[in-house]
Design a protein around this nucleic acid. Structure first.
Length: 502
RNA sequence: GGCGACAUAGCCAAGUGGUAAGGCAGAGGACUGCAAAUCCUCCAUUCCCCGGUUCAAAUCCGGGUGUCGCCUCCA
């Protein structure tokens, strides 16, 4: 398995610190607002990484933090006249609503800055003791000149950065690039006691402290968006390695941006779209599918039309799963009849369709291998998804040539195909699943029962009677009318199928 | 100014030396009362431009053009 490591700028063979185990940390949001699509990309992508590692048999310990103490939160809280910590807590709750909708599994741990003050103070003290950081008026700064490797992740030198620095220089700092690991509290700000007086952690230090605490030095994967490479992750490395004297992280992974009209989607540009607003227009499956349909390191341009096109593609996959489910259900029914009334069961026509079934099974094995090799190559989800389309085509073809009776080899092939859909889905997480890991399409569960189902089957019966009488006007009127209401009817040789529109 | 990424059909997008995956849209055919769904076929002699290396390049090298990003809070 190969992973592109930002630190070395090339793909490397993945070798975890401990055989069979993966320790990973992904930077979570600063919780002062609902998350936008740009936040959702790393969320969904790294969730997929984690799923794939688990699929590959690794025991994964996954940590994602919440930065709940921060300038932006304090400012926002001030604007709204609310307590900063309770504001942060509120957006953490909202975060989980969006993440759950996108089928993002909970991390093993979701540590918060506010719950780790003693740990943070301890590390800052250590940095000061070791001479890597110094105190000025209650602030503590990390001294970048003391860390020889500074700039190794982002590929820049201190000299380069100073040339173009457009930050106002704080003259109390020994070097303009020195950054705060602890900030003295200003009046009215939330603060915690420390040897340097009341204050709070600087940005960056929380991730070092919490990742080291739960994963230990030299953990395997640290992920986040490209814009975190500098300064956030660069500074994390400096602090962590200065404090521990050990390599901080083995593989650094960074996802590309979501853009809008080719421009980065960001809070400061104001061109962001909240996940919940998008979910009001598109299903979470489509959003997740869309996010995974481009390689994670490439930029991904967002607009409604592109999401809609992704939705049409996903519909193809859903149709295939429906066709498969139907065929399997038909076989089940048939078997029930066979047992009861000595009708022909599948076992009585064992040779039928064997050739097609065998060839499907062989194709399934190949597709499984292709899917895995795509994911092994730096998590190429775009390629992996193309394999899902191949699977859909093979399945559709096979289901279409099935006769009225389904033989044993055919049944096995169908089951094997369904198992493959399920296992691809276990990795991509596009569809929600039942406790047994089977894919749930929206219309296979709740929607197909109760009143709606009853009404529709009544209407469909009436339409079938009209069709029998060749009363096409009535039949078409019903079909067109239902379409207006978002219900699609499909007449098939084995009866009528309905589904909700896209 | 420094550093970096990207440029593949109408659109989205994979492919990093061996002769252009996949999806959306579109065209034709099969099936259908008509549709829908599905299947089959077609849809880039060519991968931003110009040079070079090579038996062979979308893929490597040099130059150019364009777009984007980081260097400041940001996923």
């Amino acid at each position: 398995m190969e992973i592109y490591n930002t630190l070395t700028r090339r793909k490397e063979t993945f070798q975890p610190r401990e055989p069979g185990k993966v320790y990973m940390y992904v930077c979570g949001p600063t919780t002062y607002n609902y998350i936008h699509l740009g936040n959702a990309r790393p969320l969904v992508f790294f969730d997929t990484v984690r799923r794939y590692l688990a699929y590959r048999g690794y025991d994964v310990l996954y940590v994602q933090n919440f930065t709940d103490v921060d300038d932006k939160i304090i400012n926002r809280a001030r604007e709204e006249g609310e307590d900063p910590l309770s504001l942060a807590r509120k957006y953490i709750d909202e975060y989980f609503k969006d993440a759950d909708a996108l089928n993002v599994r909970r991390a093993d741990r979701h540590p918060r800055v506010s719950g780790h003050m003693p740990d943070i103070v301890r590390v800052v003290e250590e940095l000061v003791q070791k001479g890597s950081a110094y105190e000025v008026d209650g602030d503590v700064y990390f001294e970048v000149r003391k860390f020889p490797g500074y700039g190794k992740l982002s590929g820049r030198s201190l000299e380069d950065m100073q040339a173009g620095a457009r930050v106002e220089v704080d003259t109390r700092k020994r070097d303009p690039m020195d950054f705060a690991v602890w900030k003295a509290a200003k009046p009215g700000e939330p603060s915690w006691d420390s040897p340097w007086g009341p204050g709070r952690p600087g940005w960056h230090i929380e991730c070092s402290v919490m990742s080291l605490k739960y994963l230990g030095p030299g953990f395997d994967i640290h992920g986040g968006g490209y814009d975190l490479i500098f300064p956030h992750h660069e500074n994390e490395i400096a602090q962590s390695e200065a404090a521990t004297g050990k390599t901080f992280v083995r593989y650094w992974m960074h996802n590309g941006f979501i853009t809008v009209k080719e421009e980065k989607m960001s809070k400061s540009l104001g061109n962001f779209f909240l996940v919940r607003d998008i979910l009001a227009k598109f299903s979470p499956e489509v959003v997740r599918f869309f996010l995974l349909s481009t390689h994670y390191r490439s930029p991904l341009d967002f607009d409604d039309e592109k999401l809609a096109a992704a939705g049409r593609g996903l519909e193809r996959i859903k149709t295939s799963i429906r066709l498969l489910t139907e065929a399997l259900a038909r076989e089940e029914e048939m078997r029930g009849e066979g047992d009861g009334e000595a009708g022909p069961g599948p076992a009585e026509v064992p040779g039928k369709g064997k050739e097609a079934a065998d060839s499907l099974k062989a194709a399934l094995d190949e597709m499984k291998a292709s899917f895995e090799s795509a994911m092994d190559d730096d998590f190429n989800t775009a390629l992996a998804i193309s394999v899902i389309f191949d699977l859909a085509r093979e399945v559709n073809s096979f289901v279409q040539q099935l006769g009225a009776k389904i033989s044993l080899p055919e049944k096995e092939a169908l089951q094997k195909a369904m198992a493959l859909f399920n296992s691809f889905n276990e990795v991509t997480g596009i569809f929600k699943v039942d406790p047994a890991g089977r894919i749930l399409l929206e219309d296979t569960a709740a929607e197909k029962s109760g009143l709606t189902e009853g009404l529709l089957s009544l209407i469909i019966d009436i339409r079938q009677e009209a069709r029998k009488k060749k009363d096409w006007a009535t039949a078409d009127r019903i079909r067109d009318g239902l379409k207006e209401l978002g219900i699609i009817l499909e007449d098939t040789p084995r009866g009528v199928r309905w589904k909700k529109q896209g």
